[in-house]
């Protein structure tokens, strides 16, 4: 059991929570994630550890309401308990002083890029960050990202805030600006990561992406999260979650993410209709 210590709504559909998990808080590194299971009937969902507080013994998670589990979590209150929290899982991000890095986050993916950005800055990199969302109200962690970067550029698809356009348009401008880029980190919706990888490939800029495959056990036991990287099958949970974006088969990932669309919809619908039966 892990208690919810604090909760903030970052936007209409994005929630941030600090949950009590002292051992995970002490151990976790940037890039790692936890598996949460809300209650006895719950499914196991992976969520990135956005931040941690060793003294308070808490980890921070951010999630978007996309289905039943996240909808249930969104209405949980401070003091409520999450039945199972397992982690830290996955390989930590390789943090070094590479020189100039560009960190790109899209939508709720900003929550995932934030701890990596912070760690890269602390390691001495010059960090240019680009965060984007569909519209202004969906931009999250702007202040945190500003603090973790040397320079932050915000974009919205509809132009309601910051630069009008996609994060990839801004990255193109940064590349065109001529300053050498040593590494790009891109985390967000699959089409965004694919676009960024396609953009950096001809320039030969190493591009790391973090994949959000469907998982069950998240310890290498089931293979639900398998992805193809450089033509080889990898498990996102134990071989990732970060991979070389130029090697990832994003179309396969997209297909596999759609595997339970119908059931997920059914489950969410049943939840929203206040199903009380058994």
């Amino acid at each position: 059991m892990s208690s919810i210590i604090s909760k903030t709504n970052l936007s209409d559909s994005v929630v941030q929570m600090d949950i009590l998990a002292p051992e995970i808080a002490r151990k976790r590194k940037a890039g790692q994630f936890v598996i949460l299971k809300v209650n006895e009937q719950g499914e196991r969902i992976p969520l990135t550890i956005v931040d941690s507080d060793g003294e308070q013994g808490t980890i921070t998670i951010i999630f978007q309401i996309v289905g039943k589990t996240t909808a249930m979590m969104a209405v949980m209150k401070v003091g409520d308990e999450i039945q199972d929290v397992q982690g830290p899982l996955g390989n930590p991000t390789e943090i070094e002083n590479f020189g100039h890095v560009v960190c790109i986050g899209g939508g709720v993916g900003v929550g995932v890029i934030y701890p990596i950005t912070k760690a890269l800055k602390e390691a001495g990199n010059r960090v240019t960050s680009i965060i984007g969302a569909r519209t202004k109200s969906l931009i999250i962690l702007e202040e945190d990202m500003k603090a973790a970067s040397n320079e932050l550029i915000v974009t919205t698809d509809d132009g309601s805030y910051g630069v009008h356009g996609f994060v990839s348009n801004v990255l193109q401008k940064v590349i065109d600006g001529g300053e050498k880029i040593d590494h790009v980190y891109a985390i967000g919706p699959v089409p965004m990561m694919k676009a960024i990888a396609n953009l950096t490939r001809p320039y030969g800029i190493k591009t790391i992406v973090s994949l959000n495959a469907i998982m069950v056990d998240a310890t290498g036991m089931c293979g639900a999260c398998r992805v193809a990287v450089g033509g080889k099958t990898k498990f996102t949970c134990v071989d990732g979650p970060e991979f070389d974006g130029h090697q990832v088969d994003f179309d396969l990932l997209t297909n596999r993410l759609r595997m339970y669309c119908e059931q997920e919809g059914q489950s969410y619908e049943r939840h929203r209709c206040g199903w009380q039966g058994n």
Binding site: Q41, G42, V216
Partner: peptide, 8 residues
């Protein structure tokens, strides 16, 4: 036992 249990 889906949808009584959440995992599909």
């Amino acid at each position: 036992r889906f949808p009584e249990y959440d995992t599909p």
